[in-house]
Structures are given as structure tokens and as C-alpha cells.
Design a protein around this nucleic acid. Structure first.
Length: 439
RNA sequence: GGCCCUAUCGUCUAACGGUUAGGACAUCAGCUUUUCAAGCUGGUAAUCCGGGUUCGAUUCCCGGUAGGGUCACCA
């Protein structure tokens, strides 16, 4: 029902910098719109500026899109289409819609001859899918330059020619292009090309509400990848920046986004890129990954945990996962040896034990728990009355410290169940010895 | 400055012209098996201002104000 074979969108970045949120959100919207309508999504590298375009930036764009999962149906390089551009230019010059203009170069490297568009000086009106009718008086634009020479087309000409040749039906791009639109419509009319539908997206903003840019601290998409974010989380977050599904749901998979996305619920005002919320999205997406995958991930990042018995590992995984927001947290845990006490006996600072006098009684109590019933639940049940009677913090704090050697850790019952009965008893005894030594 | 776009909690946002203006992130408080994390419960917090239209405006219109974008032989 929603299928519409004729829809073609494009993402047209210039390879003059790393792809960041200000750019790729546009790609996300164009992609979702095309896919939802079973249309085509085209990637076109706008590399006509030979000086500023760089292969490494192009590689970065390709990398980023592939990581995000935005697969394109066609890839074009604007620089490889200059013959088409030349043909349009020649036709326009012949038809009087453009002309070769003699110039006195104002800046260094300026040409003494450029190609200018013969502006008909009239009002241009178009209906933006997001903003409605927009009216411009193009008179003030004058006869703008559309090419440095027949073989060196400039932005406006190249864009219009390529969009026409590639059959683009919907131009979904940033709001910063609104003022370019009348110029491009004028060129379309001159070359007798159809005017596509326009949807100008609100901008992604830096915290100071200005357009997000590298200068404003926008991180490359690849940087978020390095920081351990999931592509689905980025995709979800970026889509929610300026769009909502019309319900309270926020955590959506790529498939769900493709199904629910629509231009009519796209916001008109710009939105600040909020990293806190991104982290939250990442957590939510991480939690939704299959258990097996998460286990592999943890073991890959913290390999020494694989020496643990299977049962211990099963109990430890959820404990680790609830402390992870991005995958980089696992690297940090590895780095800081956060879980090392499960592998090696920790060194315990006697003063950290605070009130160790109950440790001997604790050992006696735990001795009674059968090895096969040494679970967090049973341990808690067994110790609880005693701890309550003697004062919970008096009993539980030294128990936890004796087991972990740390001031901060998961609760003592969980820790004990992961260590197993033997190690638990040993470490408690070690704590007792330690106190004896001190005394 | 010209032109264009925009305006709901700190942030992202919801609300056929009638709601105690809702949700999420963040924040604060409390609870939970001392600590960390997670979780749960609750709280603080918004319709930029002024005029219209209307029985009734967050919503429609106009004007201010504020913010943003754009004004290249870059894209």
C-alpha cells in the first residue's frame, strides 16, 4: 500500500570533511523515506571542488554509512559527470539562459571569464513538504555564477543537472539549503527539468543553538563508533532528533523506524544534539541484544573472565551488563581490573574492613550452606537474620570487602554466589587472619 | 544589514480550538539487601511578549521580540 516505485532520494555530501551528525542525520531521513516507500536511495559525492575534496573523507563517508547500515542503491561521483554538466552549460549558453561573462578577478585565482546564469528576475514559489509554501524574490540574486568554465561546473548547476539525470523525486536536505532552492529551481526551468519535491529538515544544533559543525565540537560518526556506540542506537537517536512516531515509544529498531517514519511528523525547529540521551538510547539498545551476543562481547573485551566456571560467568554477566552504557565501558572495566577479584584473590586493606568482628560467625553460618545451593538467594536468606540482628552494615560491609577488597562492588550475596562456596569461605577467613595480624 | 526559517519544562518532544499542558533524558528526594550500578516511587520544571478571531486559544491571524540559516569563481 505504501509502496511507491517512483520515489528516489539522495544523500549528497561533499568529501571535504569527516561525516558528523549535522550531515548524516540528513542521510538517515532520506534513507528511511526511500526505504519505507520501496524507493531508491542514491549516494552522490559532490566532489567538484578539487581543492577541498579528499579521498580519505570520501572513505570516511562510505565507512560511516556502511556502519550505520544505510545501504545505497547507486553511488555517483559528481566529478565524473562533467560531460553532462558541459552539455547543459552549452545548451543554456546557446539558448541564452546563461552566458560567458568577462570578469575582473576580485580575489586571487579568480577567472577573467566565468559562466553566469541569466536571471529572469522573478518570484519563485515552492511548497516545502515540511514548511509549506515558501516565496522568494530572486532579483537580488543577480546573474549568479554557475560554472568557472564549461568543464568546471559549480554547485547549483551540478546539483540541478545531477538530480534531474538521476531522477531524484524527493530532495531531503538540511534547512541551510532553503535559500539555495530558488536558484536551483530557476536553473531547472532553464534546462527544462522537473522540479522535485523538497523537504528541508531542521538543523542539528550545537549546545549554543548554532548549526552543528566540526568547529562546534561535532564528533565524526566514526568517533562514536570508536567510543563504543551501537549503530542502531545512533540511528534511533538521530531519527528522534526532529521526528517522533506520534506515540510515546522511543526505542525503535531500524526495521521499526523504516516502518513508522514519515515526513509529516518532522519538526520545524532545530534540535540540540544531546549526548546524554544518546547514551541512554545506547543502553536501551545494548540491553536488547541477544544474551549470547552480549556474553561473547564481554568475553572478547575482558578475556580473563573466560577462566571462570560456567555457572559463575552466568551469574556475573548481568552484573556487568547493568553497569555498561557503551561498549567502551567494558574496555574501561578491563583497564581498571574492575572484576579481577573474581579471578585472583584481592589484597585487602584492613582499615577498609571497618567492623570485622562478625566475620568468624559469618563463616560458621555459610559453612552450613550446601555447595550446590550456594546462590545469592540462599546466601542472603541464611545470613539475613544474623545481619539484621547484629546490624546490617556491621556484617555486610566487612563481608563484601573481604570478598572483593573494594569499597565499591555489587552486593555481597551476588559476589559470594559468583565466587562459589570455597573461595568465599577462604576469603572470609583471610579477612579474619588479617585482623589478627593487625591486632 | 537584506532575504528566509523557527519559537511548549535545562534538553528531545506530545496535545481534532476545550487536557490538572502528557512522555522521555537530565536533575532532586525517598525506597530497595551497608557501598557502586540497576530498578521502583514521587517531586521540581514549559506554552517568548502583545494584539486580534472565537463562548473558549499552546493550537488560527497580525505585529513585536528572540534565536537560527543564508547572502562565494565552497558545497
Amino acid at each position: 500500500m505504501k509502496s511507491n516505485q517512483s520515489i528516489v532520494t539522495r544523500f549528497a555530501p561533499s568529501p571535504t570533511g569527516l561525516l558528523h551528525a549535522g550531515n548524516y542525520r540528513t542521510a538517515v531521513f532520506a534513507y528511511l523515506f526511500a526505504r519505507q516507500h520501496k524507493g531508491k536511495f542514491i549516494l552522490r559525492l559532490e566532489d567538484t571542488d578539487r581543492e577541498r575534496s579528499r579521498p580519505e573523507y570520501e572513505a570516511n563517508i562510505l565507512d560511516s554509512l556502511s556502519w550505520l547500515g544505510l545501504e545505497y542503491d547507486e553511488l555517483h561521483h559528481q566529478s565524473k559527470r562533467s560531460e553532462h554538466h558541459r552539455a547543459y552549460l552549452e545548451k543554456m549558453i546557446a539558448g541564452g539562459q546563461a552566458y560567458i561573462s568577462k570578469e575582473t578577478p576580485v580575489k586571487e585565482g579568480g577567472r577573467s571569464e566565468v559562466i553566469r546564469f541569466k536571471n529572469p528576475n522573478r518570484t519563485v514559489t515552492f511548497t516545502d513538504l515540511i514548511r509549506g509554501e515558501i516565496i522568494f524574490d530572486t532579483t537580488e540574486l543577480g546573474d549568479f555564477v554557475i560554472a568557472k568554465s564549461l568543464d568546471e561546473p559549480l554547485f547549483h548547476l551540478a546539483v540541478v543537472a545531477d538530480d534531474a539525470d538521476l531522477g531524484i523525486t524527493h530532495i531531503i536536505r538540511g534547512e541551510d539549503h532553503i535559500s539555495n532552492t530558488p536558484r536551483q529551481i530557476l536553473i531547472q526551468e532553464a534546462i527544462n527539468a522537473p522540479t522535485p519535491l523538497y523537504a528541508h529538515l531542521p538543523l542539528v544544533l550545537a549546545p549554543d543553538r548554532s548549526k552543528l559543525s566540526k568547529r562546534k565540537g561535532a564528533l565524526a560518526l566514526t568517533e562514536y563508533r570508536k567510543q563504543g556506540y551501537l549503530p542502531e542506537a545512533l540511528l534511533n537517536f538521530m531519527t528522534m532528533l526532529g521526528w517522533n512516531p506520534g506515540t510515546d515509544e522511543e526505542v525503535l529498531s531500524k526495521a521499526e523506524l523504516m516502518e513508522k517514519f514519515n515526513l509529516s511528523k518532522v519538526q520545524k525547529a532545530g534540535a540540540i544534539f544531546n549526548e546524554e540521551k544518546l547514551r541512554w538510547f545506547n543502553r536501551e539498545h545494548l540491553r536488547r541484544r541477544p544474551a549470547g551476543e552480549l556474553k561473547q562481547l564481554v568475553l572478547a573485551k575482558i578475556p580473563n573472565l573466560s577462566s571462570l566456571p560456567e555457572i559463575s560467568l552466568e551469574r556475573l554477566l548481568p552484573v556487568i551488563l547493568e553497569r555498561v552504557e557503551t561498549i567502551a565501558d567494558l574496555d574501561r572495566m578491563k583497564e581498571e581490573g574492575e572484576w579481577d577479584y573474581f579471578i585472583e584473590t584481592p589484597t585487602i586493606l584492613p582499615e577498609l574492613l571497618k567492623t570485622p568482628k562478625h566475620l568468624p560467625a559469618l563463616v560458621n553460618i555459610l559453612e552450613q550452606v550446601p555447595v550446590e545451593k550456594f546462590t545469592a538467594e540462599v546466601i542472603k536468606e541464611t545470613v539475613w537474620d544474623f545481619a539484621t540482628k547484629e546490624g546490617r552494615s556491621e556484617v555486610l560491609w566487612p563481608m563484601r570487602v573481604a570478598l572483593t577488597g573494594r569499597a565499591k562492588s555489587p552486593d555481597p550475596f551476588i559476589v559470594a554466589s559468583i565466587l562459589g562456596k570455597e573461595k568465599t569461605i577462604n576469603r572470609l577467613n583471610q579477612g579474619i587472619v588479617l585482623i589478627g595480624d593487625v591486632n
